[in-house]
């Protein structure tokens, strides 16, 4: 297995804040690797270090075989970075913004012109190619932001929250676009706090919190760690009795685990939970505001480990 990215004990401290606190990664070439975590978990800091625009405080990392500290230029020639923020030149057109990145990479004019039109077409932006970006909607800007990262056909792509703030339809367009890149054997690193995105796109992923990896595996492996039960989520009124309620629920042999979440909720994992809701209700004896029953998600994995939601 060829390795695209390898890090050992990678750390980045900003004074007292440990933004990244000893990350070890081995990311195979050609994979789509997800980095899932809440805001402030350290996802962007990892991307910034790997794309050589931030020096690590400690540890080592290689990207495509090049050291991030000593061989930054070699790495920059081979990567594409799609930042979380919309980083565009507002007084340039969509086409000019994309061309600029191709020009910085030394692409031949004929190549980047053809490719830009092809990419703009795929993102449904061809009819606005010559419009100034400052007049674009947020979704259109987001799509140009993505195209600027891929115009030079990089070997490795960093997508930092590529669909943040997008409507569901535009999000699907970007997801299809990312999948298309993966099929070309490009290695993709995708950071997100959207569990559906991480689950749907990633071959393998890490969940990070407070700068540390808290779990790693394929989406199915991670969800499998929670067992085969269903997830039951209750919104309750008796918030001061949540722990007692959870203990009562756990006395049932088919309830595998339970956690308090947010201010008013309880999450239970129960085997065959859908059919046994009434039994659970009888035992926990609470006044519920609502209840939902569903299969495991990556968010449940995060809740299981941290006791918090990704959005908390």
């Amino acid at each position: 297995m060829e390795i695209a990215i390898e890090t050992h004990n990678l750390k980045k401290y900003f004074d007292e804040i440990h933004a990244v606190d000893g990350i070890d990664l081995q990311i195979p070439k050609g994979s789509l690797f997800g980095v899932l975590g809440p805001n402030g978990a350290g996802k962007t800091t990892i991307i910034r270090m790997l794309s050589t625009i931030l020096h690590p405080t400690d540890g080592t990392a290689t990207v495509l075989g090049f050291d991030i500290k000593k061989e930054a230029l070699e790495i920059k020639k081979r990567i594409g970075v799609c930042p979380q923020e919309l980083v565009l030149y507002p007084r340039l057109t969509a086409r000019e913004n994309i061309h600029l990145i191709a020009q910085m990479h030394g692409m031949a004019k004929k190549d980047y012109k053809e490719r830009t039109d092809d990419l703009l077409g795929k993102m449904n932006l061809l009819d606005r190619a010559n419009s100034l970006v400052k007049g674009f909607s947020g979704g259109m800007k987001r799509r140009v932001n993505v195209l600027m990262a891929v115009i030079h056909e990089p070997e490795l792509l960093f997508f930092d929250e590529p669909t943040a703030g997008l409507d569901p339809q535009s999000r699907r367009v970007v997801w299809d676009f990312i999948r298309d890149f993966q099929e070309r054997e490009c290695t993709i690193i995708l950071t997100t706090h959207n569990m559906e995105e991480a689950d749907d796109l990633s071959d393998e992923l890490v969940i990070i919190d407070h700068g540390k990896i808290i779990s790693q595996g394929t989406p199915d492996e991670l969800k499998g760690k929670l067992g085969e039960g269903d997830i039951l989520e209750f919104k309750i009124k008796e918030i001061e009795q949540r722990n007692e309620i959870i203990e009562r629920a756990k006395s049932l042999e088919f309830v595998r685990w339970g956690k308090p979440v947010g201010k008013h909720r309880i999450v239970l994992n129960a085997l065959d939970g859908l059919r046994r809701v009434s039994e659970i209700m009888e035992v926990i004896k609470v006044k519920m505001e609502d209840i939902s029953v569903r299969k495991n998600t990556l968010e449940d994995v995060f809740i299981d480990i941290t006791g918090r939601r990704l959005r908390d």
């Binding site: 340039l92 600029l100 030394g106 031949a108 030079h152």
Partner: peptide
């Protein structure tokens, strides 16, 4: 690909300067 894509500083400088100009003249 690598052979074709050899960024030259003079070219980068030229393209960036053109970019700066376009941005400037489009702001009345």
């Amino acid at each position: 690909m690598e052979k074709k894509m050899r960024p030259k500083i003079i070219q980068q400088l030229r393209y960036l300067t053109i970019k700066n100009f376009k941005s400037m003249i489009r702001e009345v």
